[in-house]
């Protein structure tokens, strides 16, 4: 799963999709994940990073990361053909 290249992310958590005109807001951890996805970091590495930096557990990270990326797909922020 890849984030579309033209998606604009700002420090305030504002996400803009120039090809659809949709805009979104993300919380800081969501922004962090989006940035890493945009830099094509492997998912496992992102999850590892979350687990290392936040007081949480692997199950929560796994579940929430899956849910978040599913939402990104549903909101059409990802490359359609990449799976």
């Amino acid at each position: 799963m890849k984030i579309k290249k033209n998606i604009a992310l700002s420090d305030t958590g504002f996400v803009f999709n120039p090809s659809t005109g949709d805009s979104f807001s993300v919380n800081p951890i969501g922004l962090e994940i989006l940035r890493k996805l945009k830099d094509n970091e492997p998912h496992e590495k992102i999850k590892k990073h979350l687990l290392d930096s936040y007081s949480t557990d692997a199950d929560s990270v796994e579940k929430d990361f899956y849910d978040f990326t599913k939402m990104l797909e549903q909101l059409q922020l990802t490359e359609a053909d990449a799976k």
Partner: peptide, 11 residues
């Protein structure tokens, strides 16, 4: 400007 919309939307 989109920047203005972003500011009012997020802040």
């Amino acid at each position: 400007d989109l920047k203005e919309f972003e500011t009012i939307s997020t802040l």
